[in-house]
Structures are given as C-alpha cells and as structure tokens.
Design a binder for these strands. Sequence first.
DNA 1: GTCTATAGTTCGATAGAC
DNA 2: GTCTATCGAACTATAGAC
Lengths: 203, 203
Amino acid sequence: MPYRRTPRIQARLDTQRAAIVDAATELLAESGYAGCSVAAVAAKAGVSVGSVYRHFPGKAELVAELFRVVVSREVAAVDEASQRPGEITERIVAVIETFAGRAMKAPRLAYALLAEPVDAPVEAERLRFRRAFRDIVADRIEEGVAAGVLPPQDPHITAAALVGAAAEVLIGPLTAENTDSTDTATMPALCTFTLRALGDAHA
Amino acid sequence: MPYRRTPRIQARLDTQRAAIVDAATELLAESGYAGCSVAAVAAKAGVSVGSVYRHFPGKAELVAELFRVVVSREVAAVDEASQRPGEITERIVAVIETFAGRAMKAPRLAYALLAEPVDAPVEAERLRFRRAFRDIVADRIEEGVAAGVLPPQDPHITAAALVGAAAEVLIGPLTAENTDSTDTATMPALCTFTLRALGDAHA
DNA sequence: GTCTATAGTTCGATAGAC
DNA sequence: GTCTATCGAACTATAGAC
C-alpha cells in the first residue's frame, strides 16, 4: 500500500509550516531580510534546514510568502479602521493613523515591508499590496464625494496619492538609525496633510 | 617601454562606455529591465559582449549605473523647475508638473525608474533619489513657510508626502498596459492635490 | 525528472597600440 | 616586441516545458 499522508501528519506539516513563517516574521521584525537566512529561520522555528525546503522551493518563495502574510495583517487592520462608524473624513484619517501608527510601533518590520531593498518578486508584491491599500481609501473617498462632504475628485487618484504620501513620510523616521520613539511630530503632520489634501473644509 | 594608456585610447574608452549606457537607456525605455540583457545592450551599442565587461564588473553594476544616470537627469530637470522665478506655490506645482509630465512623456522609462521590480541594489538607489527629490521640494516649502505664504509645517514631512504622492499616482497610468496618451485627468488632479495639501489658501 | 532555451559570465585568440 | 583592447564562441546556471 502506497504512503498516504494521514490527517494527523498533514496537521503536523501545517503546524510546522506556520512555525516557519512565524519564526521568519520575528526575524524580519528584528533585523530585516538579512536576518531571514534559511538557517536562522529553521533554528528559530525548531526545525531542520531541510524541513524548510520541504515547504518552500527556496528562500525567495519563503520570503515572498512571509511578506504576503505580514502585509495581509496590515491590510486587514487598515480595512477594519476604514469601516468604523463616524464621519467620512475621520474614517479616512483613521485609516492613515492606523497605517502609520502600526508602522511606528514596529519600525523595523515596517521598514522591511515598505522600503527595505529586496529582490524583484517581493517588489512585485509591494506593488500589489499598495493597490489594496489604495482601494480601501478610494472607497471611502468615493462615499465622501457622493455625500457631498468632500469636493469632487477622482477617488482613485487621491487615494493613491494619500497612500504614497503616508508610505513616503514613514520612510523618513523608519530609516533614521536611532529609532526616535518620542517622534511626536510625524503623525499629526501626516493627518493634517491628509485632511488638507482631501479638501476638507475644516482643515 | 611599458604600455601606457594614451589620451586617444582613453577617449575612445570613454566614448564606448557612454555608448553602452546610452544603448541601455534606449532599451530600458523600450522594454524595461528585461530588455537590458548584456547581449542586447552590446549589440545596440555596437560593441561585443566582452567589451561590456571591460567597463562593468557585471550586469548588476551596469544596471545600477544606468539607473543613476537616467534618474540624475530627472533630478536636474526638477531642480531647474524649482528655481524658476514666480510665486512659491507655483514653483512647487511646477516641480510636480515637471516630474509627472516627464514621466508621462516616457511612460515605460518612468515605470522602470519609479516602480518596476528590480534587484536590491537598484532599490537602494531608488531610496537615495527619492530623498533628492524630497529635499528639492522641502527647500521650496521652507521658503514658503518663512515668507508666510504657506501655513507652518515641517517642510521635510510635507515634501516627502508630496513626492510619495506624485510617484504613487503616476504608477497607476504607468502600470496600465494600454498607455492612454490622452490621459488628461491625472495631471490636474495631482496639481490640485498638491495645492490643497500645501494649505494654499486659493485651493 | 530530463531536456531545452535563455541569459550571465569567462576566456583564449586576434588585431592593434605603444 | 610587449601589452592591451576587442571579439565572440564556449561555458555555466537557471527556469520552464514535456
């Protein structure tokens, strides 16, 4: 009788795969892509290097999946913030605040997701996820325009601009070597920028 | 007597090197990094593959230099626009218009410079050049704040936001496969966004 | 799993400069 | 005569097809 992967074995493999991705996430948050050597990931996950290659064809695929998993969390958090009740402009600011606040709470990880130079496949993922963020913001802007709260504008263009602005602004503090935990200036500046750019009357 | 590299030979080498970078630039503008194979670059430059390796240790270095040369042009154009006489807000808009206008005139090239997934060394160059653009804008904003034309703000933060916004907005049309040459919407939208974000009273 | 195609790199031969 | 610039075929690695 041929070898069959039993549910029990399958469950263990799934657990192991998750452990590998979790370990890689921690390493990414500590020291970026450079810290995510296959050996380090395997050690942290408590598996052998060979086991890593049982789940991923190579380091590139591991890193790509790692990136997707971690950014998906951010997209979910931002999406949740965008759906909180309240005035439209406040909700859009909440999206930006969530995006930036999470980044500044985990600066090394945020740098890895937003800007750290990596290989082309991960860059392709970056482009994809930026569109996801943009679409979330665009939906809110569209509502605001329809409701007459915001002046007429192309929601996708403004949304792209706001996402690009937030990302670029964050790269500054994130690139500074001495992570200034008392950076109290960036967040309010970004929120003011957002409100003004939207054409909000009260800004 | 040992061989000495004469001025005449040196001049020829310099010409050849420039021809290689020029050829690579054309290929980059036609078909992105994928089109920049060493063989294609050599053929277009009218030299042998081996000669390319006399000037560059490898393809990665060729592409990195190519990137630097082409983006430097853009920085120079934007810097020139920022120094034209006129009202500060107009000059900042001129910077954004120059940045975006040049990109939309050479969309494939702009995509390669702004967003196309490449290797880590080129990504590092991207970060460096974004700071260059940001600093140009920041200087103008600083002037505007000092003159009281713009509301008080951190020039570097706003500048980073504007550069990030412009870049991100451009990626949209640039990524669309059918290059819509009659894209009349993006540029005005970006200018309006910029004026509003600066806190300009007339926006 | 092997085979094929493609792309980066290397290197020995040739021609030309000193 | 020696050294170098140039060439391009051969080599190597890798990705994709069957």
